[in-house]
Each structure stands twice: as structure tokens, then as C-alpha cells.
Design a protein around this nucleic acid. Structure first.
Lengths: 98, 98
DNA sequence: CGTCATCGAGATCAAAAAGGTATTGGACGC
DNA sequence: GCGTCCAATACCTTTTTGATCTCGATGACG
């Protein structure tokens, strides 16, 4: 049907993207965790997992707190676009038949 | 950051979309399962879960085999677009810094 | 400086989700 | 009708995800 979509999309999940965007927006894991209604350690792990899948770090770890890397800022834009795309499709589907 | 992306994207996963697209392309659960390297029952269940999340059926069950509903055809297009989008972002990220 | 509060990461356990095998129920071909 | 094909169901195992507790590190403040 398309050319680019063949094979598995690694193990990246929409949830990881949502988690990442929340942390990126808050620039703060603990606050993002509260917002997402999950506890902080699992959130940290999902971010690490995403970094592993992407092969490069999204955040710099400072002694206290974290800061987006340049790649992290770039990827945050892309991730947000994907989530918006998905949300739009979902909203559209709930209105079916349109 | 955006207007449309607020709240959880239900429980839909990229894997479900991949599974669904495979079944839609094959119009055949068992063949899709072989292609995806999973067994047929889990695949059937993921399709059902996706239908539950969307709130409407993607396939008509005939005595032998399945057929896409009209909504299923519509959604297959959307799902493929999402997967292509994700794959493009992933490919782009692997080339970083570009 | 030294103490304390803050923050993310690690370890461990419990819960939930996904996958596999075996089997059933239903429909089409002959 | 009988055998075959196909998706669905039942049941169990394995993997993944989440929660709690804790540690290590680093700033803030006196």
C-alpha cells in the first residue's frame, strides 16, 4: 500500500511519545508524572527506553532536574505532530459515518 | 504546544495499527499472522480490542474469512498514514544530526 | 561548610497485558 | 453429510508495565 511502511516500527509506542512530550513540556519528570497520573520511576524508565530505541539521549541529566538535548527538542516537535495526527484520526473515527 | 493533543489517546497502540493494516491488506487473519510472525488468536484479539476502542467494527465476519467494513476501509487508509508518519520520523531521527 | 530539601535513578515486588497451544463452532466445497 | 478451512474462545505462560521504597547526587540556605 505504501513504500515506507514495511517491517516493525521498533518497539516505540504512542504511550512513550505521550510520556516524553509531557516530560519535555514540564522539563521535570516528577511534575510530568503527576500530570500523567503515574509514578515517577516508571516514567523515568519509559523515557530511558525511548532513548534506547532512538539510539540517542533526549535529555541531559543534571544533578537536579533534566534539560532537553537539541535532539530532544527536535524530536519533541515530531512526537507532538504524531500525537496530533493520531488524535485527529481518532476524533474523526468517533464521528463516523461523517 | 498544540490544541488537539490533550488527554490520553485511549489505549490504541502503534502495534494494533500495524496488526490491523496487515489483516486489512491480506483480508485474512491467518495469513496476516504468519506475515507478522505471531499466532492467529492473539492477532484476532488485538483486532477486536481495536474495534472496541474505536467503538465500531472494522471487519464483517463471514462464515469463512473476514471482509473490511466501509469504516474499516476508511480507517485502513488513516492507519497507514499514521504508520508512514511514524516511520518517517523514526528514519529521520536515525539520521540525526542531519 | 554542614544540613536539609529536591530530584531523578535503581531495586524489588505486584498487576496487567500480550503471546502461545489446543480446541470449538460455523460455513463452504465436494 | 463429510472433510476442510477459518476465525473465535478457553486456558495457561511469559513479558511488560506500574507502584513503593530507597539511594546518590546536587543545589539552597543558614
Amino acid at each position: 500500500m505504501t513504500a515506507v511502511n514495511c517491517g516493525m516500527i521498533d518497539d516505540m509506542s504512542l504511550q512513550q511519545l505521550q510520556y516524553f512530550v509531557a516530560v519535555a513540556e514540564e522539563q521535570h519528570v516528577t511534575r510530568a508524572a503527576e500530570r500523567l497520573r503515574v509514578s515517577q520511576p516508571p516514567l523515568s524508565r519509559q523515557i530511558q527506553a525511548l532513548e534506547d530505541e532512538l539510539g540517542q539521549p533526549l535529555f541531559e541529566r543534571r544533578g537536579r532536574g533534566i534539560v532537553l538535548t537539541e535532539f530532544g527538542r527536535h524530536f519533541a516537535t515530531k512526537a507532538t505532530a504524531i500525537l496530533d495526527h493520531v488524535a485527529a484520526v481518532l476524533a474523526d473515527s468517533k464521528r463516523w459515518p461523517s
